[in-house]
Amino acid sequence: MVRLYTADRKFLTSRVLCAGDVILLASGGHGFEVIDDVSFIEVKQGPYVGEQEKVRFTANP
């Protein structure tokens, strides 16, 4: 399941992703909850500067 948030960390919606689904995360925040065995591929546009580029927050939908 993916949870989607606005840029100011407000919950928008959640969706269950299934085999073959694709998601583009262009703005705002997101979180994933694995509810079954899963394999996925994440592709990012670089450069990746490490953990300091992330803003982590605890959210309760």
Rank of each mutant, 00 (worst) to 15 (best):
D21F: 06
K44V: 09
F11H: 02
Q45D: 12
G31Q: 10
I23D: 09
K44L: 13
G28I: 01
F57V: 07
I41G: 07
T6W: 02
E51Y: 05
A59I: 08
V49D: 06
V34L: 15
K10M: 05
L24C: 15
H30C: 02
I35Y: 00
K54V: 11
R3N: 07
G29I: 04
T6H: 01
L25V: 03
K54P: 03
A7D: 13
V34A: 10
D21N: 13
F11V: 04
Q52G: 08
I23R: 05
R15Y: 04
I41C: 13
E42P: 00
F32G: 03
D8C: 03
S27H: 11
G31I: 01
K44I: 11
L17A: 09
S14C: 12
D8E: 11
A59W: 10
R3D: 03
S27M: 09
F32Y: 08
I35K: 10
D8M: 01
E53G: 08
V49P: 05
F32Q: 11
A26V: 09
T6R: 00
A7N: 07
A26G: 15
M1T: 09
C18H: 11
L25G: 03
V22T: 15
G29P: 06
E53Q: 10
F57Y: 14
V43Y: 05
I41M: 13
C18Y: 12
V16E: 06
L17S: 14
L12H: 01
E33P: 06
D8T: 13
R15S: 09
V34C: 15
A19E: 15
Q45T: 15
L4D: 02
D36C: 11
F32I: 13
Y48F: 13
S14Y: 08
V38P: 01
I41N: 07
T6I: 02
P61E: 06
Q52D: 15
G31V: 00
E53S: 07
N60D: 08
R3I: 01
F57C: 14
M1R: 08
G20V: 08
A59R: 00
L17E: 11
V43S: 09
F11E: 01
V16A: 10
V38C: 15
V43G: 03
N60Q: 14
R9G: 02
F40A: 06
H30G: 04
E51G: 10
C18Q: 11
V43Q: 06
E42M: 02
M1L: 11
D8V: 01
V38E: 04
C18N: 14
E51T: 10
S14Q: 14
G50M: 03
R15Q: 13
D37V: 08
F11A: 04
S39W: 10
G28S: 05
V22D: 10
K54E: 12
D21T: 03
K10R: 15
T58P: 04
E33H: 09
G29N: 04
T58G: 13
Y48H: 12
K54W: 05
D37K: 13
Q45R: 12
E42H: 00
G29Q: 02
L24H: 14
S14V: 00
P61N: 05
V22E: 14
I35R: 10
L25P: 05
V49W: 00
L24T: 12
V16R: 10
G28F: 00
G29W: 00
F32K: 08
